[in-house]
């Protein structure tokens, strides 16, 4: 029993990792009023660039850095289109998704050609903590990108709720006019959050290609970026709730894999639906809770003269 719980929860933590990076990045962007549906495309670009760098140099740190830079460049482009050009955010996001999917596939085709594997980040035991029975095995013998994803939750919570920058971000997303009149540079804040979100999406992709799967193929993310956006709504724009949403989805997914592997007699079509069913049920059960999206979400800022 103990081994089962450890196995399932370890799986869940790994599965949750890419979602966490992407969802937290998206949360911060949305709190400042920018909806970015291009997350999956940026993840793919991050995954490819990290993988390619590691394949050519063997340097994992450099691979991660390249993914962050590429994600940041995509974030900059997305911010330019959404904030400066004031494009319809839903549409432009889908555009960036398709662009990222196409470009990463093209680069993969021309620069790598066939599916290959690399040696990615290996598990890193944290001294003392990894020796705690069960808990240590589940949480503290993972790779560094897994730790990073979970560390991001309190860090982003702190920035959003306890710093002047966080206040500005939330103000820009709730009352841009008021923030503007108080001298907050709305364009700068939105560029900042969207670029940061892009960097985190880049890391989300790298967490797949050079830490968890250590492989790249076309459309590696398989739509994870869209689940990440859904998790932002599930988590009501709060990092801790986004974490619980990601963990819920991933844990049920890990359990359904285990149910199948153990040959428990439930049709696989049903077990595969479980993560989605449970998430929807929880969402419906909590629908009464007072959740309001940032008021300026999806609205370009026009200064009233």
């Amino acid at each position: 029993m103990e081994a089962i719980i450890i196995g399932v929860l370890k799986s869940a933590i790994r599965l949750a990792t890419p979602y966490l990076y992407a969802s937290i990045g998206e949360t911060i962007g949305q709190l400042s009023g920018v909806l970015n549906l291009g997350v999956d495309g940026v993840m793919l670009m991050g995954a490819f660039s990290a993988f390619f760098t590691v394949l050519k140099t063997g340097n994992l740190g450099l691979g991660l850095l390249v993914a962050i830079v590429v994600g940041g460049i995509f974030g900059l482009l997305i911010a330019f289109v959404n904030v400066t050009l004031k494009a319809q955010q839903g549409i432009s996001g889908i555009g960036f998704y398709i662009f990222g999917l196409g470009l990463s596939s093209l680069l993969f085709r021309t620069m790598i050609g066939t599916v290959q594997t690399v040696s990615g980040f290996s598990p890193l035991s944290i001294p003392l903590l990894s020796n705690i029975p069960i808990v240590g095995e589940i949480f503290f013998r993972q790779n560094i990108l897994v730790y990073g994803a979970f560390a991001l939750v309190p860090i982003s919570w702190f920035i959003l709720n306890k710093t002047p920058l966080g206040l500005s971000i939330r103000a820009v997303g709730q009352h841009p006019e008021a923030a503007d009149s108080l001298g907050v540079n709305i364009v700068r804040i939105r560029y900042l959050t969207v670029i940061f979100g892009g960097m985190l999406s880049g890391i989300a992709g790298a967490s797949l290609s050079i830490a968890l799967l250590n492989v790249f193929q076309q459309n590696l993310t398989n739509g994870m970026g869209f689940i990440a956006v859904a998790l932002v709504y599930f988590g009501a724009w709060r990092p801790l709730s986004v974490l619980s949403g990601a963990l819920l989805f991933s844990t049920v997914n890990a359990i359904q894999i285990w149910i199948q592997v153990k040959g428990i007699n439930i049709p696989s079509d049903f077990t595969l639906m479980l993560p989605y069913i449970v998430t929807i049920v929880v969402l419906a059960a909590m629908a009464k809770r007072y959740v309001r999206p940032p008021k300026a979400l999806n609205k370009p800022f026009e200064r009233g003269e």
Binding site: G7, L208, N219, N222, N253, I257, V261, K262, L272
Partner: peptide, 25 residues
């Protein structure tokens, strides 16, 4: 012989976790 179905031809992450689970049991 333990059999698991991924429900997709393209979900690399789930296939990877399925392999982990197979090895764990």
């Amino acid at each position: 012989v333990n059999i698991s179905w991924i429900g997709s031809f393209s979900d690399v992450a789930l296939a990877s976790e399925a392999a982990q689970t197979h090895i764990n049991v």
